[in-house]
Design a protein around this nucleic acid. Structure first.
Lengths: 220, 220
DNA sequence: TTAAAATATGAGTAATCACTCACTTTTTTA
DNA sequence: TAAAAAAGTGAGTGATTACTCATATTTTAA
């Protein structure tokens, strides 16, 4: 019901590094947990159900993870450990001035990159979104990490585009608050709320959204 | 755990009409339930907790609502019964050609109107958003009702603006899919995800978002 | 090969869950 | 005012929950 530590994500992200390799049963547990959490949510999934779906004794779950809460963390952490640095890398590469990237290209690349990543990890993405709605501490801690690892790069990208006159001279925080929710809401709709994905290619979908963002932000 | 009827919202919206007046205790139950559901979510709230917080015997809850699930419905339905028609009315009034409203004015009015309404019903809004993330049937049924009651008005508004050259000649569904998630995500961020509201007046906030939407959609 | 360590098991446990029901109290009706 | 109806109560119920632990099996190490 309640998180006991005060800095879960920090702790998680560092601890997860020194974890030994998973056993076969551990992987099956994680698989079943992800599928069930994604579909019914953490609170509506019982450990006995996870045990049954993964063909493992219930005790095995607690041998490895101690608590149900820790199992959730074991699901979320590797996803965030991948997600944040990959996004930072992508941002960094796309703003490389040698590419002479327009702001539009930057947004498009970012959008398509995250689209692919979230699709490949659709179930975990669903788990993360659903749990983040409920847990404020997770949200604020994630925000802290995003600030630390990504916002610096984003600021560079925005400043670069400002210099080329593609963005209005507004604080970056202001611009991000307008742009980011829009892109993210599209992912939530597509991967969490919609029953099935549209059969339009990503590039077509991206085009409309990128144009909307680029033209929308230009005159704010 | 599971909804038993196949058409909950339809049934709810009609049934709720002929409900007699609430007793004092019923109102206290609803109040406590809304607060608890909003904070911890439906699944993480127990009926005994609701009873305690409302100063009522647990049996009283079940006397009135039968099941915990029905209590949730009793919370959500009046909100939707207010929300949808009010939105339809607002849309209808703002597109009245005698007002010579620009598309920008229409979006601004809509945004400010919903902002006020959701703020006044912040807790219920949080309950609805949190539960809609989990329940697909609720989402699809709400969508059906929105289509029935609102989309007609929205189409009129969009066609009207198209005629004035303020919108590109694209299918209305396409335009709505670009505009609506953006506005809604701003409400979710503000009322569900953020710890506290910004101290900027609504009109200032609206200005940035409306400009973003209007300019974004113009060249899609 | 064998001892030790790690992994796996499932019956068992206390707590909590949504919900029931026989009963009392309050309100409505006639 | 008396009878009927409605509202309110709280101890009790079976089911389910997350979690434990003594024991068994498998893997690793010497």
């Amino acid at each position: 019901m309640e998180m006991s530590t005060h800095n879960i994500l920090d702790q998680m992200l560092s601890e997860a590094k020194l974890s030994k390799k998973d056993t076969a049963k551990q992987q099956r547990i994680l698989h079943a947990a992800i599928a069930l959490f994604a579909e019914k949510g953490f609170a509506n999934t019982s450990t006995s159900e996870i045990a049954k779906n993964s063909g493992v004794a219930e005790g095995t779950i607690f041998r490895h993870y101690g608590t149900k809460e820790n199992l959730l963390i074991a699901v979320i952490v590797p996803f965030l450990k991948q997600s944040l640095p990959m996004m930072a890398k992508e941002v960094f590469e796309e703003i490389n001035p040698s590419k002479h990237a327009r702001f539009e290209d930057f947004i498009r690349a970012l959008f398509l990159n995250r689209m692919r990543f979230f699709r490949e990890n659709k179930d975990i993405f669903r788990v993360v979104v659903k749990e983040f709605v409920y847990r404020e501490e997770l949200r604020t801690e994630l925000l802290t990490h995003v600030n630390k690892e990504i916002v610096g790069y984003l600021n560079q990208a925005l400043d670069y585009s400002k210099g080329k006159g593609e963005l209005p001279d507004r604080p970056n925080g202001y611009l991000l608050k307008l742009i980011f929710p829009y892109i993210f809401s599209q992912f939530v709709i597509r991967f969490v709320l919609s029953a099935k994905e549209p059969d339009v290619p990503d590039e077509v979908e991206a085009d409309a959204i990128v144009k909307f963002v680029v033209n929308g932000i230009r005159s704010c």
